[in-house]
Design a protein around this nucleic acid. Structure first.
Lengths: 366, 366
DNA sequence: CATTCACTCTGAAACGATTCAGAGTGCTGT
DNA sequence: ACAGCACTCTGAATCGTTTCAGAGTGAATG
């Protein structure tokens, strides 16, 4: 490393000590209250003095009241923590997450609230709960966490207003979610009604211990992500009346098209008799379609595919899928949080899902 | 609205007053310093007393030291603000942003720093700078902001350690960026060398006043996003030696495939003589490929397409593009921030770009 | 027996702001 | 001339911690 440059940056802020409200007050010979008012309540002092205060602040290199101290005194930070139990990359890779978060942000922004994204560290050695325990926030939104996970526990321990999204209910938190089981059931029922009997299933993450590949009964029993669990139950519920129907569940380590593609290749190679695929997300379905094309299986003639989410792009892909009100969900979550922050109890919400039949499903080839 | 439920949630935290360190201390008859030490310096008190403190805390419903007060006292928050001059939806829609942010996060996470994403409000009425002025952060990373924008000014006014990504240099901040102009020049030179003379250009946003469609000289002169400006200059620099070459610049209001598709349709309809497309991002290029397919123009026989970024998916698409070290960039930004936070001066960084020729470029049809 | 030392624990001063309850003004109305 | 009022400005308490400089113990050391 080269020796530090001798000349500190000349133009910008004076290096060294931090300038505070008090310094400005002292310079001008006024009270700190007055300086504070100059920033927060212009009507509490004469315009003349106010300008002098602001000028002195500029001269001294005072950058305005410290948000931290202000938050402490005011008792609110204006920040909402969103807990996402996966590295930031994956959070970004998921359009449904983007949609949801955009919607939450929009809803709370009117109340001068911002969103702090608390993603899991890439380094699995690192303590994922540290960020949660240290975050200066007014409340938590848990978007994605395994039931019973350390992360979830850390959130609940903070005792702040908390909204759980698509999670098992917990005391001290409000739940907002969708009818995962119902939507999944409708999707599977649709395929079964078309005559399919060998259904591949592309699951989202089953548990914090990510894995990829076929899912046996033992593994299936360990499912801790509620969304995955509910959807799988939905599929199975639809299959129950059909003794001749078989499900071939596999799990993706991450919700990405690549993951879906790899899983599909593997599944179709292993079980060529599979004529239809139940995917727990449109993103996985997208990968499934790519794999089908690569394998030379026409959709829907040789292979039916159903997704989940109904992303904006899925209509273009003509994908049969289960629609969920992602935007609404974000809004409901935001509203629930605002209610909690206002000190009022918020009621849990369950939003409906709906099967949208498009062009990727058809009866199996005879 | 129905009347508020009479019974407050019974299980969770005691409603009403907040429990503090002092309450715990008082209950046990010890000093607050001791309670604080129980949490922060277990070696400073007997294990026995420590357990009693922790137990009393649990009994009282004390959730641990308030991060806000702690941050104030310690003089650091452990949060880095990342300024993104677009709504969160768009931030998420951009895989390059995901990659970059993931890399930044990974780099600073080892130092117990988290990332606060400060995206612009959807409601353009809202004050975008408010979040910046109120954020309790140790430093700012400006990922995407127009030169001279209110957002950028607000950041610089905070006087905190600041890293500017792909931006014009500013006093009091460190720049980290890539060789945009060089990469763009290489891309255009490649097409010109293949014999193309009518080059469509799909620009990223030119200025905060988003617009979509053809770009005239007047509009081009108003470019305030440095990335767009530099890349356009690169394209033009490559074209300069070829008097018979013509550029047809258009601008996208947002960096999305849809935007690229619409722009391409419009451009090719308006100027059928165009045989090649210079896209300022792989995302736009992806849209361009979709449009070409829809219009029945084969790539690369009837239309050459060059992207920018070289996203992970672009190799699969066999897209000729300008590679940039997105991951490295994030790491450099993280490192620069860590250096600044350590009170040392950080040197500006410019990373190289490189043209990657794949299958979407070829000589024009004779 | 006097020192020294390690071990626990405490008091009080920060950290940087906001805010409430006045204290001085000077002006108006009667 | 005096009460009343509007307008400015101030003092001091407070938000919930951390941390530094000891104070008080009892045991080990010489």
């Amino acid at each position: 490393m080269p020796p530090a440059k001798p000349s500190a940056t000349p133009g910008p802020p004076r290096a060294g000590a931090r300038v505070t409200l008090r310094d400005v007050a002292r310079t001008l010979g006024v009270s700190v209250a007055t300086v504070s008012n100059a920033y927060n309540r212009p009507d509490q002092l004469s315009e003349d003095l106010r300008q002098r205060v602001l000028q002195a602040a500029r001269d001294l290199g005072y950058h305005g009241p410290d948000p931290l101290a202000r938050s402490l005194r005011r008792g609110r930070t204006g920040v909402l923590g969103v807990v996402y139990d996966a590295p930031l990359d994956y959070a970004f890779a998921d359009p449904a997450a983007a949609l949801f978060l955009g919607s939450v942000t929009r809803t709370v922004q009117n109340r001068d609230l911002n969103v702090l994204l608390l993603a899991a560290p890439h380094d699995s050695q690192a303590d994922a709960t540290l960020a949660v325990r240290n975050a200066s926030v007014d409340g938590f939104i848990v978007y994605c966490a395994a039931d019973g996970s350390a992360l979830l526990r850390a959130v609940l321990e903070r005792g702040l207003p908390t909204v759980l999204v698509d999670q098992e209910p917990h005391a001290g938190a409000v739940n907002v979610g969708i009818d995962d089981a119902g939507g999944a059931q409708a999707a599977a029922a649709h395929l079964l009604a078309l005559g399919h009997r060998h259904l591949g299933v592309l699951c989202l993450e089953l548990s914090e211990q990510r894995a990829s590949g076929p899912v046996g009964p033992a593994r299936e029993a360990q499912t801790t992500y509620r969304t995955t669990d509910q959807r799988l139950r939905g599929y199975r519920a639809a299959a129950a009346p059909h003794p001749d129907a078989t499900l071939y569940p596999t799990e993706a380590a991450h919700n990405t098209p690549d993951s879906g593609e790899a899983l599909t290749r593997d599944l179709l190679t292993r079980h060529p008799q599979v004529t239809a695929l139940l995917c727990m997300s449109d993103v996985l379905a997208q990968g499934a379609l790519r794999a089908a094309a690569a394998l030379g299986r026409r959709v829907p003639e040789d292979l039916s595919v159903v997704g989940f989410d109904d992303l904006p792009g899925s209509e273009t892909m003509d994908l049969t899928t289960v629609w969920q009100p992602t935007g609404d969900k974000g809004e409901q979550v935001g509203q629930a949080m605002l209610t909690l922050l206002a000190g009022q109890p918020a009621a849990p919400v369950t939003l409906p899902t709906r099967l949208v039949v498009r062009g990727t499903t058809a009866p199996p080839a005879p």
